[in-house]
Amino acid sequence: MTDERDHRTTLGPQQERPGNEIAIATTGFAFALVLTGAAFAIPSASFIWGPGHYAALFVLAVAQMGVHLVFFFQLSTAPRQINNILALAFGLLIVFLVIAGSLWIMAGLDANMPPMTAS
């Protein structure tokens, strides 16, 4: 009985049906493959308006990260996962502050620098 429980190791509650776990991992892998393929096709997709490439890549990356969280980490909105979701939300807040804050401040500094040439 203890052994049974010790192997019930997903972030989320245990899946009831056997076979389900393999199907979940395989679905996630298939989604990830499609999204990765799409992302690698973007740089040579000349039919997309230039600055749109960045938006498309960003959206595909966020989508694939979501796929990984749902299918590989098996995060869900189940009540027992509330701590995991809260920790993730806090982590995302810090990540956003670090990246967006750095870009914002450094772009401001850069704009106020006197023109320089590399020596």
Partner: peptide, 22 residues
């Protein structure tokens, strides 16, 4: 259960690692 607590602790570690990557 134990693995849920271990999972949560390790998850917090991973998130801190992701902040370093950020």
């Amino acid at each position: 259960p134990r693995e849920e607590v271990v999972g949560f602790g390790f998850w917090v570690f991973l998130l801190s690692d992701i902040v370093i990557f950020a």
